[in-house]
Design a protein around this nucleic acid. Structure first.
Length: 305
DNA sequence: CATTCGTGAAGACGAAT
DNA sequence: ATTCGATTTCACGAATG
């Protein structure tokens, strides 16, 4: 119990006392360095999975198992430090030295690659966020997601920038920030295909539940980019609301839907914008706008709005 | 001439097998 | 692992104004 309090106040890695409690995953994460204290501690034990599950169910205290205070124990059993290469006992002096060396070796090996990776990734994320004008809280979310991905060993064999981009995309969707995958990808050197693959992998292994993104989230952005009046924008929103209750939006690309709504609204209000302009603003093709527009016209009664 | 509309081929994706 | 169904995009041509 004393260990739990100790860990809550100080991160064993960087000494920071700032933690984020992610109760969805049952993880306690150091805000400064990203070390997942809870999971890190648990993975040292042989049955950490059972432990986490129990923790999750009881929803009681979050903290490391008792073994955390003796994390050296595991090394004692796996590394021979009591005898030399010929099986002769070592002097206590050498024994201590050896033990220290081994421990350092193992720890630095485990941490060095992790840290190097994280540093590169956070750097990349910083650049991306800057380029795309990502709000700070979204960036933070992306960072957290990346750290989880890293801890799940999802980065091995894939490109860091791709995973970073995927994490950012996930963060945008969770926070309902209207940024398309393509916009994010265009700020990187990676292909859309690759990033979207990473995104799906992250979603799956982290068991993340994404809110389905509504076309409404994109109306403002598109309207602004295309330079339409607030009136048109309001009408577009109304159209989409109506379309939603009429089940006219299932399975369609939300940006295309939003674009069509804006186009329709502008047409109706007499301040017509070309499909081309809206298509550009929404990053969909004119064909898609036409298709959605057709459905919208059929399903919602314009005059009633 | 610019804009709009419709169409077939092709690629991507999720779900089902 | 492959196939299927729905969807978007691309690249056109035709109609409209």
């Amino acid at each position: 119990m004393a260990q739990a309090t100790k860990l809550r106040t100080k991160c064993p890695e960087c000494g920071s006392s700032d933690f984020i409690l992610d109760d969805e995953m049952g993880e306690l994460v150091c805000k400064a360095c990203g070390l997942v204290v809870g999971e890190k501690a648990m993975s040292e034990g042989p049955e950490w999975r059972a432990f986490t599950r129990e923790e999750k169910e009881s929803r009681a205290r979050v903290g490391p198992p008792a073994e955390y205070s003796h994390y050296d124990k595991g090394l004692y059993t796996s590394i021979e430090v009591t005898r030399d290469a010929f099986g002769r006992p070592l002097s206590p002096e050498v024994r201590r030295q050896m033990w220290r060396l081994k421990r350092w070796n193992v720890r630095s090996k485990m941490h060095a690659s992790h840290d190097r990776n994280l540093m590169q990734a956070m750097n990349e994320l910083e650049l991306l966020s800057e380029k795309l004008h990502i709000p700070p809280h979204v960036k933070e979310t992306a960072a957290l997601i990346y750290r989880k991905a890293l801890n799940e060993d999802l980065v091995r064999g894939r490109s860091i920038p791709a995973i970073v981009a995927a994490s950012l995309h996930a963060a945008c969707r969770i926070t309902k920030t209207p940024k398309t995958l393509r916009e994010i990808v265009e700020a990187t050197t990676r292909s859309e295909k690759e990033v979207s693959r990473c995104y799906r992998i992250i979603l799956r292994s982290l068991k993340m539940k994404m809110p389905i993104d509504s076309p409404l989230d994109y109306v403002l952005k598109i309207a602004e980019k295309a330079g339409v009046s607030g009136e048109v924008q309001g009408l577009a929103v109304k159209i989409l609301r109506e379309a939603k209750v009429n089940r006219a939006v299932a399975g369609k690309d939300p940006t295309g839907l939003a674009a069509a709504a804006v186009y329709l609204a502008s047409e109706f209000k007499g301040e017509k914008i070309t499909q081309k302009k809206i298509a550009e603003a929404a990053e969909v093709t004119e064909v898609t706008i036409r298709k959605r527009k057709g459905e919208l016209v059929k399903k919602v009664n314009l005059a009633a709005l």
